[in-house]
Simulated assay, not measured.
Amino acid sequence: MEIIQEVKYDETMKTTVEPYLKQRCISGYTDSYDAVGKLHVLRYQADMPKGVIVICHGFTESYPKYDELVYYFLQAGYHVWLPEHCGHGWSYRLTKDSSLVHIDTWKRYIRDFLKICQMAKKEYPNLPLNLFAHSMGGAIGAIAVSWKPEWFQHVILNSPMIRPHTANVPWGISASVSTLQCLIGKAEHYVLGQKPYEASETFETSASTSKPRFTRFNERRKATKEMQTCAASYSWLSNAAKMNTYLMRHAWKKYTAPMLIIQAEQDDYVWTSQIQKFADKIKKHGIAECEYLYLSETKHETYSSNDETMDKYINKILAFLQK
């Protein structure tokens, strides 16, 4: 697969990728699993499909962040479904604060996501279903697969949030404090140190190692309120801790499909040691085949890396999907 080069990145995205995606995209809404709100779902159609890939996006992300990756998957012959999680993008929210990611229970994420996967399976019953899941979506997707292992042909966990980083506060304290804050009625409050969107992120402080890739999304985010989620509520953090416990104690035992777990060298958003421990459990005691890809000179958003890394990264993913 030929990778879009950084030197012509913005031009190529505007003149080639965006028109290509627009022609193949169906954007719509469906009820959440409990009909509390509407999930925004994008469905992209490949010309000669050999499978379906469902993308499970990360914390504070929205669908435009995956334009380049969707383009590669379509070029390789995969339909792509991309739902936006509760509290993200154009999907329903449980809080009026557009900057805040808030959830009542982690199981909402899983049940919403599995509903979309079931819809994809029903629409394309003869095509294999594959998962690409990043960061928070890695936790959601990894649990979803453990609930329905028979649905998935291949599973890719990209910088998965087995455990989120909590700045300089030890994990045990962060998890305990967030649970306490929920108990005293502050579930919807900002986690200490986090604040509303200010459009202040720079390339140097970002999770990307490709300035053109970072800039394209960041400029659109500045202009679009639906893309400006940037902070966690105490309830979100408390539920992230519950997902961590479930993943490490239960989920890893259930997998049957081949798995590819990808780790960035420098990751300020998730604990890489927890990713390694999770993969080791699967390799040593699980049922599924598990590959581990370590990407040097990368940050958390491995899909937003320099050209050399992107070439290695994308072609590894596509080769894995062919296994």
Score class of each variant (00 low, 15 high):
Lys14Leu: 13
Thr16Tyr: 08
Val17Asp: 08
Glu18Thr: 15
Tyr20Ser: 11
Leu21Asn: 02
Lys22Asn: 12
Lys22Met: 09
Tyr29Trp: 13
Tyr29Asn: 14
Val36Trp: 14
Leu39Gly: 04
His40Tyr: 05
Val41Arg: 04
Gln45Thr: 11
Gln45Ser: 12
Gln45Ile: 07
Gln45Trp: 07
Val52Ile: 11
Val54Glu: 09
Cys56Lys: 01
Phe59Val: 09
Phe59Pro: 03
Glu61Ser: 10
Pro64Glu: 03
Tyr66Gln: 10
Tyr66Arg: 10
Tyr71Trp: 10
Tyr72Asp: 01
Gly77Met: 00
Tyr78Pro: 04
His79Phe: 05
Leu82Ala: 02
Glu84Cys: 01
Gly87Glu: 03
Gly89Cys: 08
Gly89Thr: 07
Arg93Val: 06
Leu94Ala: 12
Asp97Tyr: 00
Ser98Gln: 11
Ser99Leu: 08
Leu100Met: 00
Tyr109Ser: 07
Arg111His: 13
Asp112Ile: 06
Lys115Thr: 03
Ile116Gly: 01
Ile116Tyr: 00
Cys117Trp: 02
Gln118Trp: 06
Met119Asp: 02
Lys122Phe: 00
Glu123Thr: 05
Tyr124Arg: 02
Pro125Gln: 04
Leu127Ser: 09
Asn130Asp: 00
Ala133Gly: 06
His134Asn: 10
Ser135Leu: 06
Ser135Arg: 04
Met136Asp: 08
Gly138Ser: 08
Gly138Trp: 06
Ile140Met: 09
Ala142Thr: 03
Lys148Ala: 06
Phe152Arg: 02
Phe152Ala: 08
Gln153Met: 02
Leu157Phe: 07
Ser159Asn: 10
Ser159Arg: 05
Pro170Ile: 03
Trp171His: 11
Ala175Ile: 05
Ser178Ala: 14
Leu183Gly: 09
Leu183Cys: 11
Ala187Tyr: 02
Glu188Cys: 02
Glu188His: 07
Tyr190Cys: 05
Val191Trp: 08
Lys195His: 14
Pro196Phe: 05
Pro196Tyr: 08
Pro196Lys: 13
Tyr197Gly: 14
Glu204Asn: 11
Glu204Gln: 13
Ala207Glu: 12
Arg216Ser: 09
Asn218Ser: 12
Lys222Asp: 11
Ala223Cys: 13
Ala223Lys: 15
Lys225Leu: 15
Lys225Thr: 14
Lys225Tyr: 05
Glu226Asp: 11
Gln228Asp: 12
Thr229Met: 13
Cys230Pro: 01
Ala231Met: 09
Ala231Glu: 04
Ala231Leu: 07
Trp236Thr: 09
Trp236Leu: 13
Ser238Ile: 05
Met243Glu: 02
Met243Ser: 03
Thr245Asp: 13
Leu247Val: 12
Lys253Tyr: 06
Lys254Gln: 15
Met259Gln: 10
Leu260His: 03
Ile261Thr: 03
Ala264Pro: 04
Tyr269Cys: 15
Val270Met: 05
Trp271Lys: 11
Thr272Gly: 10
Ser273Cys: 09
Lys277Ser: 15
Lys277Asn: 15
Ala279Phe: 04
Ile282Val: 05
Lys284Phe: 07
His285Leu: 13
Ile287Cys: 14
Ala288His: 03
Ala288Glu: 08
Glu291Asp: 11
Tyr294Leu: 07
Asn306Pro: 04
Asn306Arg: 14
Glu308Gly: 09
Thr309His: 09
Thr309Cys: 10
Ile314Arg: 01
Leu318Gly: 02
Leu318Met: 08
